[in-house]
Write a protein that binds this DNA or RNA. Structure first.
Lengths: 352, 352
DNA sequence: CTGAAAGCGCTAACAC
DNA sequence: GTGTTAGCGCTTTCAG
């Protein structure tokens, strides 16, 4: 029942196994009659080629490995604050892969491991994936790229910023998005705006900060040091960040958090000291995590198109999907559009 | 670099490939000297056995397949409301698997597909996983279990309720948890409590409803029909649900949503008609999704131990991990403890 | 305690 | 157009 092989199919169709293989692989020079015979036999037996056997014999393993960051994932889970980055990523991947009989393997990688290079090499030589999907901060680690290059796998880098000639690039314009959000706050009338940044390992942290600074500068607005805080992308960091910013010499009327969790923390921190959001203080985030839409007030944020980026990456990583793309699309770096989602946490500054 | 094989290791250690295999598999009757030699060679070459080859040759594929529901996953993504069930599940799985060189494959399964049985059989015969992790509602579908049994794979069922003699069972006491939450509301002083239930395919929906009803009955409290609403686990359903319940002949002073998304929807729906939560209306949820802790007010809910359940399942699905468990633990159904998390969305009913 | 040989179910050269 | 023959890198008999 569970175990028909290519020989069974060949026998049922009275052809050679090579013919079966040819049909299954969509190779050229196959008669319609053959296709039909084989198709029928496959159908009747409910036959599927063994992933293991294909991986072993051929060059294609039909497996895409997604490397996700262990630290942040574990942290999110322990703190209970969760995060749907993973879900969104996988959804994007799975929606594409299901079309082509490829499969997803998820691996946690600890970028802080002293043996990262070895760990990764071991992983690759064991799995031999056909493509690797790199998420931040792994996308930007030279060690990681080196191992990948040495092993010869194709890989896509989500949100990479350095060494842009390596691998397939898929990202969104973080800098411009941060700039847009800052402009949004400025347009509302804010002049003193604080920023809570993320950890330096994440390229996005720097880009978002840059976007913020650029917009402020464009409008001739100053950003004193005490209007800048740094966090580690957690809710608690947002609480701490807002505390710092509100203690500034001239406290900001708006705060832009480099991620939703921190922005949400900022809201809570502000409410805790008696401020009303957005009446007394506007708060904006970045990511559009689910919590952003359920928080009170709902959070103005940037929708990071994680699933779309993952889908684009996978399309370029799997030969059958890649073939559907134009020559241009196959090689060019992909920049997926984002969206500013204005919700209730931002408004005009208080008249004071 | 990327391609050392068992032959390379054997050569480097001047032994036969079988000896290498024996050491790697921890088989008995191996001299310390041999172990050392092989270990050294493996170390130096950075050798890892090929997953494909092992899967093909042996009976063990070292792959655990997690079957997640396509419909709900896609829905969460489209609505942007997200959900961290998947992340939590995978975290639990990955933390266990990393100890034993097993790998996780994630597959989306559409339980509503007319060809579900075929789809699944095809998937299994292609992947040949060593264990399958079933999430609701797949855990409780006879068709699914039948295919699994026919293929002979070991499988674990998360939150299963029917046919409890099939597969490895891992769950939490949904009924009791719902009961606890209801008791919590009653203890606060509520007498008229409304309930927004989930879709019938999910066993949990029924169990939670039963728990609610049981607690109400114990206290001699009535539950008129118009205090019962049904939703599909989405935020929108919560909004609709609260609308219905507030329109009841004698409107409830507390609402218990069968999941956090619906409870959050209920809060928003209540706020929209001018009610204050929890002053005018208490709202409780179920799941403890990240949004629950960021919502305003923060949501009183039941912490569903998804990662822990997944970990327990994986421990029983992978032979090397299973071996560490006591005989008792290996066979008994696992019931993972939950926790009622009291937050700010519930309080005593208004004096009226 | 260790080794030689025979596949696992495919794909890939190479014939025909 | 189609079939034959080798392997891919392991685990498994079965010997010694």
């Amino acid at each position: 029942m569970a175990g028909s092989t290519i020989y069974d199919v060949a026998a049922a169709a009275s052809v050679s196994i090579k013919s079966v293989s040819r049909v299954l692989n969509g190779e050229p020079n196959v008669s319609e009659a053959l296709k039909a015979k084989v198709g029928k036999a496959v159908e009747e037996l409910g036959y599927r080629r063994s992933l293991s056997a294909r991986g072993l014999a051929g060059s294609s393993s039909s497996v895409i490995a997604a490397l996700v960051d262990a630290g942040m994932t574990i942290e999110h889970w322990r703190s209970g604050s969760g995060n749907d980055y993973l879900s969104r990523l996988e959804l994007g991947v799975l929606m594409e892969l299901r079309q082509v009989d490829y499969h997803l393997m998820v691996e946690m990688v600890d970028y802080a491991s002293p043996t990262l290079s070895r760990d990764l090499a071991a992983l690759l030589s064991s799995i031999r994936p056909e493509g690797v999907l790199l998420t931040p901060p792994n996308s930007d680690l030279t060690v990681v790229l080196d191992v990948l290059d040495a092993s010869g796998v194709a890989y896509a880098r989500l949100g990479a910023e350095h060494e842009l000639d390596r691998g397939t690039l898929v990202s969104m314009d973080e800098r411009q998005a941060a700039r847009d959000m800052t402009e949004h706050l400025i347009a509302l009338g804010h002049r003193r705006i604080g920023f809570i940044g993320g950890p330096a390992v994440y390229s996005a942290s720097r880009l978002r900060l840059e976007g913020f600074m650029a917009a402020m500068q464009t409008h001739g607005l100053e950003v004193p040091d005490d209007c800048l805080a740094e966090g580690d992308f957690t809710f608690a960091a947002g609480v701490a960040g807002v505390k710092r910013l509100l203690g500034a010499e001239r406290a900001p009327t708006a705060i832009f958090g480099a991620c939703d969790d921190m922005a949400l923390g900022a809201i809570q921190g502000a409410v805790a000291v008696g401020l009303r959001v957005p009446d007394d203080l506007s708060v904006a985030g970045f990511d559009d995590s689910p919590s952003a839409m359920f928080s009170n007030p709902t959070l103005t944020t940037i929708r990071q198109p994680v699933a779309e980026m993952a889908a684009a990456a996978v399309q370029r990583l799997t030969p059958p999907l890649r073939a559907r793309l134009s020559q241009e699309d196959q090689t060019a770096a992909v920049v997926v559009p984002y969206r500013l989602v204005a919700r209730a946490s931002t408004a005009a500054p208080p008249p004071g």
